[in-house]
Computed example of a mutant assay.
Amino acid sequence: MERFVVLSGCSGGGKSTLLAELGRRGHAVVEEPGRRIVAEETLATGRALPWIDMAAFARRAVEVARRDRVLARAMPRPGYVFFDRGLIDAAAALDHSCGQAACGAALRAVAARRYNRQVFLTPPWPQIYASDEARRHGLDEAIAEYERLLKAYGALGYEPVVLPRVPVGQRADFVLRHLVARTDGV
């Protein structure tokens, strides 16, 4: 769906901050499935956490991202819906966690559920990267994830747009300009 726009890329690259800025500007937003899952699993002393059982976590992320799309379709307001990660991110994580034998199976399964052709990726940004209780992996792992996502989105026919390393307001302006330019046929 052209109105569903994904913010993807490197963990700790500023996606959630950008999503919050777009929300402040009046756009519909959907928070990252992974952070919601970590919060739920931590409260319930669950095991579907990336540092305990990555495959279970990724399967849950696929389910949550599917549900997010259904709920977003029902949103009454017109305009873009911005997703902090989405179904493709979750499927790429599931493929990665399952090893080479299953590589690509989850991505192929979700390929028909389209988002806007342009997907905005936050590049690795060591100066702002920080781990926390929900993000326990290091920058090297985040960079490897970024490379996998860049490849996955490209392989599925998306147009990855790497965001500049600029303050959040300028990043939001950049995203909105690119989307308007695309709809104007530029």
Score class of each variant (00 low, 15 high):
Met1Arg: 14
Leu7Asp: 09
Gly9Ser: 06
Gly13Tyr: 11
Leu18Val: 04
Ala20Val: 03
Ala20Phe: 00
Glu21Arg: 13
Arg25Pro: 02
Val29Thr: 15
Glu32Asp: 13
Pro33Val: 03
Arg35Asp: 05
Arg36Val: 04
Ala39Arg: 08
Glu41Gly: 00
Ala48Pro: 01
Trp51Met: 08
Met54Asp: 03
Ala55Tyr: 06
Ala55Gly: 01
Ala56Trp: 00
Ala58Leu: 00
Ala58Trp: 01
Arg59Leu: 01
Arg59Trp: 05
Val62Trp: 02
Glu63Trp: 07
Glu63Asn: 07
Glu63Ile: 00
Val64Asp: 12
Arg69His: 13
Met75Ala: 11
Met75Val: 15
Met75Ser: 12
Arg77Ala: 10
Arg77Trp: 04
Arg77Glu: 11
Gly79Pro: 05
Phe83Tyr: 15
Asp84Lys: 09
Ala90Met: 08
Ala91His: 00
Ala92Gln: 08
Ala93Trp: 03
Asp95Gln: 07
Ser97Asp: 08
Cys98Asn: 09
Gly99Glu: 01
Ala101Met: 12
Cys103Gln: 12
Ala105Tyr: 07
Ala106Arg: 02
Ala106Cys: 01
Leu107Tyr: 02
Arg108Ala: 15
Tyr115Leu: 07
Asn116Gly: 10
Asn116Phe: 12
Gln118Val: 01
Pro124Leu: 11
Ile128Met: 13
Ala130Leu: 06
Arg135Asp: 13
Gly138Arg: 13
Glu147His: 03
Leu150Asn: 03
Lys151Glu: 14
Ala155Leu: 12
Pro164Asn: 08
Val175Asn: 07
Leu176Ile: 11
Arg177Trp: 11
Arg177Met: 06
His178Ser: 05
His178Trp: 12
Thr183Tyr: 04
